[in-house]
């Protein structure tokens, strides 16, 4: 659970910061902890956080929404990111995306209702030689053809059983 002991969390820096600064400084750390535990930032948890730190909800959401890697909706167990960078685009990334969208009934950026998968796109994953590329969580899948698409689908669905 997230520790609300600001002074402990901030260590030696705490002494020179005002109460307000400390509260705001705690936010990012708290978001990371919450997201680690819940996989996203649930509204009720943020409300508790705001109340405990005495930080208004507008500031809580303003701070969190500044960072791309904090999410306000539940995310899937598998995060599938289809690269739509130049090389992947040329090698048919849109076909890959369309196939996955069709299979799972979600659009880019959405999560399946059963929370098995979140489908996203990325600008580049740094291995254009393997285009088209996608990642499932930390794993990179390269040279995707229809067979590999089927494998991605299978790997997502596997976890359900």
């Amino acid at each position: 659970m997230v520790s609300m002991d600001i002074d402990k969390e901030m260590g030696a820096v705490a002494g020179v910061l005002s109460r307000e600064q400390k509260q705001k400084g705690m936010l990012i750390h708290a978001f990371q902890e919450i997201q680690k535990e819940c996989n996203y930032l649930p509204e009720e948890t943020l409300e508790t956080l705001g109340r405990e730190l005495d930080v208004p909800m507008s500031v809580v959401y303003s701070t969190a929404s500044f960072y791309k890697h904090f999410y306000f909706k539940p995310r899937g167990k598998k995060i599938v990111k289809v690269c739509t960078g130049t090389a992947c685009h040329v090698r048919g990334a849109s076909e890959v995306l369309k196939a996955l969208e069709g299979e799972f009934g979600v659009k880019e950026g959405e999560t399946t209702p059963d929370l098995s998968m979140t489908l996203e796109t990325v600008g580049c994953v740094g291995c254009c030689g393997l285009a088209p590329v996608a990642t499932i969580n930390e794993d990179v899948i390269g040279e995707i053809d229809m067979k590999r698409v089927a494998e991605i689908i299978k790997s997502v669905k596997e976890d359900l059983s």
Binding site: P56, M57, S58, V59, Y61, S62, S65, F66
Partner: peptide, 9 residues
Amino acid sequence: TNILEFMGR
């Protein structure tokens, strides 16, 4: 009052 804030960036 703390209602309006910048969201996103």
